[in-house]
Design a binder for these strands. Structure first.
Lengths: 345, 345
DNA sequence: CTGAAAGCGCTAACAC
DNA sequence: GTGTTAGCGCTTTCAG
């Protein structure tokens, strides 16, 4: 026992210890751990036994240094505080875990500067690849990642004009389909409560989706009463209050997501405005919240779990083969529930 | 340019490149980055300039290997799918980030085996320390961490009989206070919908809290109609349906957390049972959901954000000084809202 | 305050 | 199949 580990008395076994104990070379031990097929059964058994008796576990830094990769993927989501991204991230993590990849999650709080910062942090932490939400960000970020050879997968958005790998859905078309449903019922005065559109392509696309539908129904898209506010139930409630105080109240309020919609619903209840008789409200995402409120929220179902696990699949593919898969478009689905009805005449 | 980087053309600058470019040794560059105070202003400026012009960023693996730490802390929470842990984790992450520490989050899906697996994964990923929820787990896990010199902080639970570092609240006392409030209103037939108690000390403590209150009010704790079920709105709803179908319905149903309570509320609504006139329902945690439902949920407020950031503070302390801080107990608060009332006679 | 140099523990050619 | 060995890029004594 003549190691020179200074103060902290921590003498963890190393590859060399295992090799010695099993009477093989370090290379063989390494192979047993990384590509067992290359090692003879008998040798392997001996080595694995040594591993367990010594309680060996590889040193992360050393491995990362020598292999030039960490087996870690970073994801930056706008927020962890509500359920919007939770389900997808959970599925994403599970699928990555099955492939021996660890997920590092960070959140940007919907701030572009914050996100840029997190990108740098994750790369500095050795993320082999990144999963980001939406395409819309400073091109410098993409250049930085390119230069460092860190592949990126964009998720939550499908935009055929963007060539980079992506898995998502067509926010504009999905919202347009929902708005079409609203307009077909005869609503003419339309309100919309959206997330802040700056730096958020999903929010912008959803707004445009509503305008598309208005055009298709012969309405002036400029007549859309639009309020932008950060995502939160409270903000949705506040925006709704403003909207309902206006002289010509909309008869239908389309919300950029379920969280805002639930806030709007809350305000309607407080103001004694009946939903859907006096005002219809719709959401987007179909998170659990949507079916918990009464009446249940009409919304657009997003295949969160599938998006999560497919994202993992794509990323693992990108890392393994160095390939650049084409963008994947998932289908969304209209959920017609209690908060939408024809305007009362 | 005579590097031997094989196929992938990726020639990122190294410490040595920076040193050469700035005309100093690698040691000096390292110091500039890690303890700038030790370097003369002029030298430092020169080095930092070289860093930016070369676009240098340290290699994670190399740094981890040489420094024998990664600057990463792992957290394992039971689930990311609902908001119970979201707020605390968000605060935890923010506070760690401010201290230059990166958070690695994993979830166990409330499965002990899964958790044990994640512990090993996180340690293998180089986590310098771990944050776990609750004390209750196989002692082997604590031994494993001890042997590897990985400090642990338990959170979400305060149990004075456990010596290890912890930050949480007294689940038993908090639930007892809530149950006391219920019983004081005159409820006698009490139901409880709890999370699975096996391997979950928080759930067990909350059940005992209810029983404590019953004893204090002269009721037989055995008369508590208890149903255990995994956390989810759907399961809460189902348990409630079973409970309301029983011959002698409880007049108050105490739920182990808000998620279950919201499910119970949903069932009551569907069955046309008025809350709180015909049955009172209470939750625990005070997540956003609690105020979104109607009537709003009577529950126990848990200081999630504070728990998160204090956990970060403690962990940073433990890593820095090698100290073992004593357990910290936070206060919870009763939130009396619409779902609780005296039983109708 | 700065430089020289010895590793940190592991992987991946390459040789046998 | 298995062994040898040269690094991977950085931190950290130890001298100066």
């Amino acid at each position: 026992m003549n190691r020179k580990l200074s103060d902290t008395y921590r003498n963890l076994p190393t590859l060399a210890d295992v090799a010695r104990s099993a009477g093989v070379s370090t290379a063989t031990v390494s192979r047993c751990l990384n590509s067992p097929a290359q090692v003879q059964q008998a040798t392997r058994d001996r080595v694995l036994e040594a591993v367990t008796t010594l309680g060996y576990s590889p040193n992360f830094g050393a491995r990362a240094l020598a292999a030039r990769r960490t087996g870690t993927i970073g994801a930056i989501i706008p927020t962890m505080e509500n359920a919007i991204f939770a389900r997808a991230i959970q599925a994403f993590q599970e699928a990555l875990h099955e492939n021996g990849v660890t997920l590092l999650v960070a959140s940007s709080s919907y701030s572009p500067e914050n996100e840029a910062d997190q990108v740098r942090t994750l790369v500095a932490r050795g993320a082999d690849a990144l999963m980001l939400i939406g395409h819309d960000r400073d091109p410098g970020i993409y250049e930085f990642l390119e230069r460092r050879g860190v592949p990126v997968l964009v998720s939550w958005a499908y935009d055929p004009t963007q060539a980079r790998p992506a898995i998502g859905f067509d926010n504009r078309r999905a919202m347009s389909a929902l708005a079409d449903e609203v307009l077909r019922l005869g609503h003419v005065r339309i309100g919309m409560i959206s997330a802040l559109a700056a730096g958020n392509d999903r929010a912008r696309d959803r707004i445009e989706g509503v305008r598309d539908a208005m055009r298709a129904h012969g309405l002036d898209p400029q007549s859309l009463h639009l309020i932008e506010t950060p995502y939160s139930i409270g903000n949705g409630a506040e925006a709704m209050a403003g909207m309902m105080a206006a002289p010509a109240r909309p008869t239908a309020v389309i919300c950029g997501n379920d969280v805002l919609a639930v806030g709007a619903l809350q305000t309607a209840r407080q103001m004694g405005i009946h939903v859907p008789r006096e005002v219809s409200i719709t959401g987007f995402d179909d998170i659990e919240l949507a079916t918990v409120v009464a009446p249940a929220l009409t919304t657009v179902h997003v295949p969160h779990r599938e998006m999560g696990w497919q994202a993992a699949r794509l990323l693992v593919e990108m890392l393994g083969g160095g390939v650049t898969p084409p963008p994947v478009c998932l289908e969304t689905e209209l959920c017609l529930r209690g908060t939408l009805a024809a305007p009362s005449k």
